[in-house]
Nucleic acid binder design. Structure first.
Length: 421
RNA sequence: GGAAGUGUGGCCGAGUGGUUGAAGGCGCACGCUUGGAAAGCGUGUAUGGGGCAACUCAUCGCAGGUUCGAAUCCUGUCACUUCCGCCA
């Protein structure tokens, strides 16, 4: 959420931003409602002040107070009835107004996002036709999609043997790597309340929701541990000495992917995956620096895994509502779509104070005043996507897959994935 | 899952219908005192909204309700504690 007063005082900034982000918001209606709301609010407060004065007045008898109080109460009731629908409609529009946008973000839709850097690993020249991750992994006996579909439906999968170990190795490697940069490892709940889902920027119910809601409860399966990590400090004043608060959550992530149907083959788009996610709560003046650190860590992890990638500066039209600025890493997946394609593997967003305002995350500034903190998030490693990039890039003509050196200690020294009996 | 109890400011804690936004204490800030420090003394010390300001509105887990008036009464809900049951 943006500051309501800021919105009223910077209407043109908001209008331009809505246009750049290609977001449909009835801003005129919002302004109309907001001004009306403020007028009604003032009237209501005046009536309340009168009522309070009557209730406290020593010169009046109880009967006199009662008589005058009832009049105030009636007026208050009438005003409240008028105010409520105005407030509700204004609020409904208010929550759809997205964050401000970094001035350097390319203006436009998804296609406008700009490649601003590339990884250290060059794209490999294959002397054979690279096979896609499904073929490679199924032949190795480390992936079983059929069983996943049988048990839980499309979009679910089994990792078996070396595949299971590979998930743990990737997750643990990423966790250890960011721990060295000062991130505290955290295991979080895999479920979260509706209110937190909304606060963190995820729609818990309805058709546009990408999350699973648990029937007869106010709980949802989390789509990322970002939700539970920021939830940990929601409604709190974080001690300034503890900032920046750097967390690395390891959790399962669940996504219903209603919008995408169930057609996607393989493990690129699945309903459940494991992800190591970084979240930082910091002072406003540190946010930009932290964002660069998140991006650097993501790059280093994939450089070390020997996976070629490019870094995208995300265009205005493709930013999430909370993101002020966002980078994606896209790995080269040599067999994707049959001919090779870039596929998103990580994403890091600077949410400025937008998410903190919604979740009420504060700190005390030098004057002792409460201020909203800034929050940022970034993927350290999302297992399925990383796994695709890894097996497709490191596959050998004989069907084996070389394990990157940094992962070998986590695989009991294993250097190659080989066919399982 | 059943029963009982509790939920007040940064913290502890008083407060069961009427100048209580909230006693007292701790902590913190400033001042006095001191060669310096400690102790002692004094003053101040919630958050958000509206207003240039005086001031005013809201907030005592959360949401409703009763009442002229609610931290205080009622209902629901969430959390915590204890007891019972169940269980990895």
């Amino acid at each position: 959420m943006l500051d309501r007063r800021y919105i009223l005082e910077n209407q043109e900034v908001i209008r331009t931003n809505l246009k750049n982000r290609m977001v449909q918001v009835d801003f005129d209606r919002f302004l109309e409602l907001e001004y009306e709301r403020r007028e009604l609010q003032k009237e209501l407060e005046a009536v309340r002040a009168e009522g309070n004065a009557v209730a406290k007045a020593k010169g009046l008898t109880v009967d006199e107070r009662r008589a005058q109080g009832i009049v105030c109460k009636q007026k208050e009731g009438a005003l409240t009835a008028k105010l409520k629908p105005v407030e509700e409609e204004a609020q409904a529009i208010y929550v759809t107004i997205p964050n401000l946008t970094y001035e350097g973000s390319p203006v436009g839709g998804e296609d406008a996002s700009a490649t601003i850097a590339e990884g250290k690993t060059p794209m490999r020249q294959f002397d054979f036709k690279p096979r896609d991750h499904i073929d490679v992994m199924e032949d190795l006996g480390i992936l079983n999609l059929t069983a996943g579909a049988k048990v839980a439906g499309g979009g679910f999968y089994y990792f078996i043997g070396q595949g299971a170990l590979l998930e743990l190795a990737l997750s643990r490697y990423a966790l250890d790597y960011v721990m060295k940069a000062g991130y505290t490892p955290v295991i979080t709940p895999d479920l979260a309340r509706d209110s937190l889902m909304q606060g963190a920027g995820f729609v818990p119910r309805g058709n546009e929701s990408n999350t699973y809601h648990l029937e007869d409860s106010d709980l949802n399966l989390i789509a990322t541990s970002e939700i539970t990590l920021v939830g940990m400090v929601a409604d709190e004043v974080v001690e300034t000495s503890k900032l920046p608060l750097k967390l690395a959550g390891l959790s399962h992530c669940f996504r219903s992917e209603r919008a995408h149907g169930s057609a996607t083959r393989g493990i690129y788009r699945v309903h459940q995956f494991t992800k190591t996610e970084m979240v930082v709560v910091c002072l406003p003046e540190d946010a930009e620096k932290v964002h660069m650190e998140l991006r650097r860590l993501e790059q280093e992890i994939f450089d070390n895994l020997g996976i070629p990638y490019r870094v995208l500066e995300i265009a205005t039209g493709d930013l999430g509502a909370a993101a002020y600025r966002k980078f994606d890493l896209e790995a080269w997946m040599p067999a994707r779509n049959g001919i090779g394609a870039w596929g998103e593997i990580t994403s890091t967003s600077n949410c400025t104070d937008f998410q903190a305002r919604r979740l009420n995350i504060k700190y005390r500034d030098g004057q002792g005043k409460l201020q909203f903190a800034h929050t940022l998030n970034g993927t350290a490693l999302s297992v399925c996507r990383a796994m695709i990039a890894l097996v497709e890039n490191h596959q050998q003509a004989d069907g084996t897959v070389e394990i990157p050196e940094v992962l070998q200690p986590y695989m009991g020294g294993l250097k190659k994935l080989t066919p399982q009996r």
